[in-house]
């Protein structure tokens, strides 16, 4: 039996210390033929982890989660690995099949990198959810929203098409926040914009020659809307796509007050909605994604990428007459 040693501060275990299970699995991968899978960056880690765990459980394998992110399935059978791979690739995420011991070098490199990887960084302090209404009420009049300019290249010059008075929920909630909380924050800030519009407090940087597009919260159609800043055509209320079920009611209400409609939140898979027969609107705002380049947009001239996106977005927009959004200073 070991003697008790005098108490000394024990050194921290090295960052690269592997669990007993992982160590054993690495040995098995070195010694015997088995299959594996590397999934470096799954879109939804919960789903990828479940698929790999299922494969591991059914074939005596193990799922390793490196600190840098992603997953490795180790020591599984070929069949179980194939099933997991089919699911993960079917979801549209990359997966690299591994055959051990041939691919030991890849695994060893990853294990070595694990030793150098920093431990998981603590999550950024998120703003508390409770009390966000009071925080929104206390925000300064210019906080939580901004003015972006809608433009399109026509010939060699950009043509300004309008200005969108947008909410910026990051001012109220930051960090990784579930979509429903973010939506609620957008709603609170949208209600502030609407209240300002009711008393005619339009943004100081507004260009009177351009139509104003006003972000609206997702809410039931109200009894009354404020009139637009002037009688020029083209002013529109920007509704979240979630409000599409009330599109006709909003159309009547907005029309009576002098506004048109625009829709925010379109995706490539909903591109077919962007027609007046389906969704009445002057503009359709979408976030750019690679899938957007494959989608059949029925009216690309009424489409705007907001935020603008990367070079691919710019190239697609230039080629198809799609509009983009930029802050005034840009």
């Amino acid at each position: 039996m070991r003697q008790m040693q005098p108490s000394h501060p024990s050194p921290s275990p090295p960052a690269a210390t592997l669990s007993a299970g992982l160590t054993e699995m690495v040995r098995r991968c070195q010694a015997a033929e088995c299959a594996g899978l590397e999934v470096p960056a799954p879109g939804v880690p919960v789903i990828a982890a479940a698929a790999l765990e299922e494969a591991a459980n059914s074939s005596g394998g193990l799922v390793w989660r490196p600190r840098r992110g992603g997953f490795w399935l180790l020591g599984a059978t070929q069949g179980a690995t194939q099933r997991a791979r089919a699911l993960i690739e079917g979801m549209g995420w990359a997966a690299t099949p591994l055959a051990f011991p041939n691919d030991m070098a890849l695994l060893e490199a990853a294990l070595a990198a694990e030793g150098e990887a920093a431990g998981p960084s603590p999550p950024a302090a998120a703003a508390p959810l409770a009390g966000m209404e009071e925080r929104a009420a206390r925000m300064g009049p210019e906080a939580g929203h901004g003015l972006t300019t809608l433009w399109r290249m026509e010939g060699a010059a950009p043509r300004l098409l309008g200005q969108r008075w947008m909410v910026e929920p990051e001012a109220l909630l930051h960090g990784a926040v579930e979509q429903n909380w973010r939506g609620h924050a957008q709603g609170l800030l949208g209600a502030r914009l609407l209240a300002r519009a009711h008393v005619g407090q339009w943004p100081a940087e507004r260009k009177p020659t351009l139509p104003l597009l006003l972000d609206m919260p997702w809410m039931p159609p109200p009894e009354q809307l404020p009139p637009p800043p002037d009688s020029r055509p083209g002013h529109a209320l920007v509704l979240p796509l979630a409000a599409a079920a009330d599109a006709q009611a909003w159309l009547a209400l907005a029309g009576a007050a002098g506004w048109g409609l625009a829709w925010n939140g379109l995706t490539a898979s909903l591109a077919w909605l962007a027609t007046p027969e389906r969704l009445p609107g002057e503009w359709f705002f979408a976030r750019f994604s690679p899938a957007a380049t494959e989608a059949a947009w029925p009216r690309p001239e009424r489409l705007a990428f907001c935020p603008t996106g990367d070079r691919a977005a710019l190239a697609f927009a230039l080629g198809h007459g799609v509009a983009m959004c930029s802050r005034m200073e840009a």
Partner: peptide, 12 residues
Amino acid sequence: PDILADPDAFDI
């Protein structure tokens, strides 16, 4: 309405 409110989640 839930599909339209969160099209990315619906795709998944």
